[in-house]
């Protein structure tokens, strides 16, 4: 399996092992995609979501489950997750493009409008993307969340950007 010997999951594996948002939910707007598939003692994501959209419960090693109907895609959980394992995907950004928001703890942080190399889960550059938002309020505690717009067919593939 890719996860245990290469460090990342393929999209198919992810869909099989996590509570992945449905197409119907994606059509309604931005939603959290939680790529946390190891039963580790961790739950800040659950506490960070004020909408009750992430459930872990007891024991703490349960995998986080997305309650997609409750998720408004606000992105608060993205910066709170110490595993940097949560992303926001918006398939409704425009007719041809969608956005992916990801945690990005490297310097320099990109600027809005900047063209960047978008990479997949294995770090491979898959396309160009345009930075449309960079959020870094104090409450994110130095974990900036970068949003890039990419072609719609890449939103489930792109998970970060090449370091600048």
């Amino acid at each position: 399996m890719a996860l245990e010997n290469m460090g990342y999951l393929t999209l198919e594996e992810l869909k099989a092992q996590t509570v992945y948002p449905t197409e119907e939910r994606f059509r309604k707007g931005p939603v959290a995609v939680i790529e946390c598939t190891h039963e580790i003692p961790c739950n800040p994501c659950e506490g960070s979501c004020k909408f009750g959209a992430i459930k872990i419960g007891d024991p703490i090693t349960n995998l986080p489950g997305l309650v997609e109907a409750n998720c408004i895609g606000c992105g608060i959980c993205v910066a709170q997750c110490p595993g940097l394992a949560i992303f926001i995907v918006d398939k409704t950004y425009s007719d041809t493009q969608g956005t992916v928001s990801f945690p990005y703890e490297y310097n320099p942080v990109p600027e809005v409008g900047q063209e960047v190399d978008a990479v997949d889960r294995s770090g491979k550059v898959v396309c160009r993307g345009t930075v449309v938002k960079v959020q870094n309020p104090k409450s994110y505690d130095r974990t900036p969340v970068v949003t890039v717009a990419v072609d719609l067919d890449q939103v489930e593939t792109v998970r970060s950007m090449k370091r600048l």
Partner: peptide, 19 residues
């Protein structure tokens, strides 16, 4: 297999580190 937590491994895989 990778010894540590895979979310940590995924972070560095995404950053292009071959494991």
């Amino acid at each position: 297999n990778i010894g540590g937590y895979v979310v940590h491994a995924s972070k560095i895989a995404r950053a292009g580190v071959p494991i």
